[in-house]
Amino acid sequence: MTKQETNIIAPTLATRRSPLYRRHLQYQAHFKQVGDNIVVDSYPNEGAINDEIEIAKSMGLCDLSTLDRTGFKGVGTPQWLASQSFKVPVLANTAEEQSSQSLLIKLSAQEILVLSDLLFLSEDVKRLYQKAVENHQSYDQQIYNLPRNDSHCWLAVTGINATELFSKLCAVDLRSHKFVQGAVAQTSLAKTNAIIIRHDLNKTPCFYILSDISGAEFLWDCLLDAMSEFHGAPVGLSALQTLASNQ
């Protein structure tokens, strides 16, 4: 799909739009539709998509807020998810990639967050949500669904310089040798509460950030401001998808 074709899609046409869509419009972003989701494909720049991939490898910021995510909480949640053939992390504050490429994050002993994959290959989140609705009465009633689509924005900071950015905004040591693949920190980022998950895109470091959706524009502006000295910039989902799919 060319940029001209993707730009015809407006984020306002979607049933659910990103809390950052006004920012993307300011940047004259190119949008694309994947399933029910409208995402930023790329931002206009001098070169082609390869330029954006290079930015993402160095320091990029991507809005993933329209991608599906959900959560479950309550006594027996890990066991219930394990019975649904999910690999549940043993330790709290760790993430486990599933064979379907969705990501399961254990936030505490009885709380799990589920993120869909960047390539839209997995139906895990939709399936679990449907299961939660259908089986509301049948599974242990102490387990309850925590829909995360409308409570948290979802951003990704990518690139080898990403940890330099976090050292300015976060008190937790997120350097690569301390905060390894699959590590999770629930902490304060730019004075706002956030869940930070290390989930690399092959060899490119990648940090997912989930934070209160009402503060999405604040956090987006803070991150862009902090990354300006490192020549970081917003990148579209296509760059991340390329990095995720390249072996």
């Binding site: 709290a92 504050n93 505490s108 008190a171 937790v172 920190a185 629930q186 902490t187 304060s188």
Partner: peptide, 11 residues
């Protein structure tokens, strides 16, 4: 006990 050592401003 869940998240480890953190700044008091997080509590």
């Amino acid at each position: 006990p869940l998240n480890g050592l953190r700044n008091i401003s997080e509590f």
